[in-house]
Measured scan of single mutants.
Amino acid sequence: MPSETPQAEVGPTGCPHRSGPHSAKGSLEKGSPEDKEAKEPLWIRPDAPSRCTWQLGRPASESPHHHTAPAKSPKILPDILKKIGDTPMVRINKIGKKFGLKCELLAKCEFFNAGGSVKDRISLRMIEDAERDGTLKPGDTIIEPTSGNTGIGLALAAAVRGYRCIIVMPEKMSSEKVDVLRALGAEIVRTPTNARFDSPESHVGVAWRLKNEIPNSHILDQYRNASNPLAHYDTTADEILQQCDGKLDMLVASVGTGGTITGIARKLKEKCPGCRIIGVDPEGSILAEPEELNQTEQTTYEVEGIGYDFIPTVLDRTVVDKWFKSNDEEAFTFARMLIAQEGLLCGGSAGSTVAVAVKAAQELQEGQRCVVILPDSVRNYMTKFLSDRWMLQKGFLKEEDLTEKKPWWWHLRVQELGLSAPLTVLPTITCGHTIEILREKGFDQAPVVDEAGVILGMVTLGNMLSSLLAGKVQPSDQVGKVIYKQFKQIRLTDTLGRLSHILEMDHFALVV
């Protein structure tokens, strides 16, 4: 994948999101292997301009796509893939009243899908469409860049269908997702969380590099694949309309690839034109409109599966009536509230959605109805927002919020430890010299600072030695090549209790 991002070429006709291997024109390309080798690009942008032909009021008969309808489940399912879809609609009884809503608040519980998330729908649909058009064949390999849930859905379907599955996901995604993927037989590649989507090191860039190296491999490409919004247009939206008897006044959905909100909203605009569509985008993402909503100094966020630093091709923002931004604290607070007060075992993005819903639905009156999409299960986040310690460490809970008995030293300040200034190293000294210094002084790690004293990161003896043994660096290389740029900081005025929580999850903390 090139470091400079080429513009994806656009073909003359058809839909841009065809499933299957992508040609340089962004659509299915038939021909000899030699032709494909000559024409197939190194990668295709996940934010390529959409060429979708959908228009409100256009006859369904003019759609270029294969459409399906929700099917009634048999008493005995032939395999677990038949437990994807037909998820329950559940009334939220307490939270709406707590925040003064007059309307009825309903939750579409997508964590009841077989793999635990709304992404099971698009995973199965992308595979079925690729099999139907002859792209996927027995023994082929599926590769997908994902925040985890699409990966789980694909790995689940691949396990049943017999495909090899490789999932490329950023490091910030939970260990629970990784464990589930491994249990399903998927191979996992992790990428830096802070890598831009168009960087060769991003999950998108690495996935395309693997595709170019592995024979008979395919990126189904949830960011561009029409099967993504079509899955929701054909099934999720129809289920909502049936469950609500066609009567709903507002739908609120958090947005990642945009397939969920695009597919549902398009069908609702056709069948229930008075329904307002509300999009939820986390602070630090750029999906919301108008652009002024996205202006923030924050560039990272903890909530998973929603928000991006690019506009995915499948996201149709014209069908969203209003956007709201959400933050991590309210997302996790509301997710825990949904679990504790409503018994809905949902993930953090569901918290984002409901946090926005109780604001947006203030305009609705008694007798009206708001539906929220709860995308995934708490299963993926047992060591994250479900953990009091994690919430404390991230600053989303305060010590006084917890009532468990603490040891005698818990409320003492870090400054009472009488710490001395640490050994520091410059980023320009060599790895070999740094190892000598650390061994001589008896230290395992040291902060790396520039000549102005600005902290650049941390270097550890173990990481340097393993990097040297693996051949990633040489003793003569500058130590700046092996620094940890993500590390926890703590102030002298913070409590030892807070430091204790940090050290339970990290090997060190830097006192500043």
Results as ranks from 00 to 15, higher is better:
A8C: 02
G100D: 12
L56D: 11
R276L: 11
A265S: 12
L220K: 07
T235I: 11
P70F: 05
K102P: 05
Q55P: 06
A183N: 06
T135V: 07
K247F: 02
T150S: 02
R164V: 07
C244M: 02
A24L: 11
K137G: 08
V180L: 08
S123T: 05
G258S: 12
G148S: 06
T257W: 06
G85M: 05
R190C: 04
R276E: 02
N228D: 04
L124R: 06
C15R: 04
N149G: 08
P273F: 06
F112L: 02
E213I: 08
H203F: 06
G31V: 15
R182E: 07
L105I: 13
E201V: 02
R58Q: 12
N93M: 02
P33S: 09
C165R: 06
L136Y: 07
E201L: 09
T257L: 06
H67Y: 02
D120V: 02
I76C: 08
L136D: 02
A157S: 04
G153M: 08
T191Y: 05
L28K: 07
P138V: 08
P192W: 02
I80C: 10
N225Y: 02
T257E: 04
L154I: 04
A253I: 02
E110V: 02
K75H: 05
S254C: 13
E187D: 13
A195D: 02
K211H: 02
E187L: 04
G246R: 12
P21V: 02
A253Q: 09
A159T: 13
P138R: 12
D120R: 04
A69Y: 14
N225D: 02
Q222Y: 02
S27G: 11
S202L: 02
E176W: 04
T150P: 06
L56S: 12
H218E: 07
G256H: 07
T193C: 07
P2F: 14
K177R: 02
G256D: 02
S50M: 02
T262C: 09
V180M: 09
K75W: 15
A8E: 06
I214C: 05
K247D: 02
A130F: 05
F99P: 02
N228L: 05
T5D: 02
I261A: 09
M89R: 02
V118M: 14
R125I: 02
H232E: 04
T68S: 10
R276S: 02
M89N: 06
S63V: 06
